[in-house]
């Protein structure tokens, strides 16, 4: 009589439970009304069940976002776990919607759920993809813009995972600076 192998029937637990949110830009509704929780998951298997079931970012309409955040953190600056933080921001050109967007977003998700940034993963709050006519954006949000070491570790490893050439710089901006900016650009606190 065989002993069952747990590998065959136990799902693989993630370090964190994650929540996937969807934002659809309906101008007749408020920002918070447009933000919907899709589902939460905390195993590798349940992540793929969800990922394989939903549209890729390149298929979303303009003004739509996906946000993947640790359970309990809302995908907004105002959340207590975000308000002192900031984001590594990647701005894509129009051509990259077809070439890179979906692949980059999947890599971003795998970095988060796999805790790819080692101890610095504790600083990660979530990730956001914005689908916009001028160019799509990808970001990893972290909880405290003063945690330089963790932020630099995340930025360097993220850039490596996405195969971004080393001469192409990406910047980290605090949410405080982003929310209070007067022009169209926000200053970078860090770059890699």
């Amino acid at each position: 009589s065989a002993v069952a192998n747990p590998e065959q029937y136990i799902k693989h637990p993630l370090q964190n439970r994650w929540a996937l949110w969807y934002f659809k830009n309906d101008k007749s509704k408020s920002w918070t009304e447009n933000l919907r929780l899709i589902a939460k998951f905390d195993t590798v298997e349940d992540f793929w069940a969800l990922y394989n079931h939903i549209q890729q970012p390149s298929k979303l309409g303009y003004g739509c976002d996906y946000c993947l955040f640790k359970d309990g953190i809302k995908p907004m600056w105002e959340d207590d776990r975000n308000k002192l933080g900031g984001r590594w921001l990647m701005t894509l050109n129009k051509q990259q919607r077809h070439n890179d967007l979906d692949r980059y977003w999947m890599e971003t998700l795998l970095c988060l759920i796999g805790e790819s940034f080692d101890e610095a993963s504790d600083d990660v709050c979530g990730a956001v993809v914005n689908v916009r006519p001028k160019g799509d954006k990808l970001a990893i949000w972290t909880g405290n813009c003063q945690n330089r070491d963790a932020i630099m570790t995340i930025g360097q490893q993220y850039k490596e995972r996405l195969n971004i050439p080393s001469k192409a710089l990406i910047g980290y901006q605090s949410h405080d600076d982003t929310s209070s900016k007067s022009g169209s650009t926000t200053k970078n606190m860090y770059t890699v």
Binding site: Y9, K11, H12, P13, L14, Q15, V44, E45, F47, W48, A49, Y51, N52, E107, L110, I113, G114, E115, S116, D118, E119, S121, R161
Partner: peptide, 20 residues
């Protein structure tokens, strides 16, 4: 310790049959 999964391990589950 932290439950870390590398990219290839995670990808190997994308098209697995559902758990029974």
């Amino acid at each position: 310790g932290k439950k870390q999964y590398n990219r290839d391990f995670l990808l190997s589950f994308q098209f697995m049959p559902a758990c029974v």
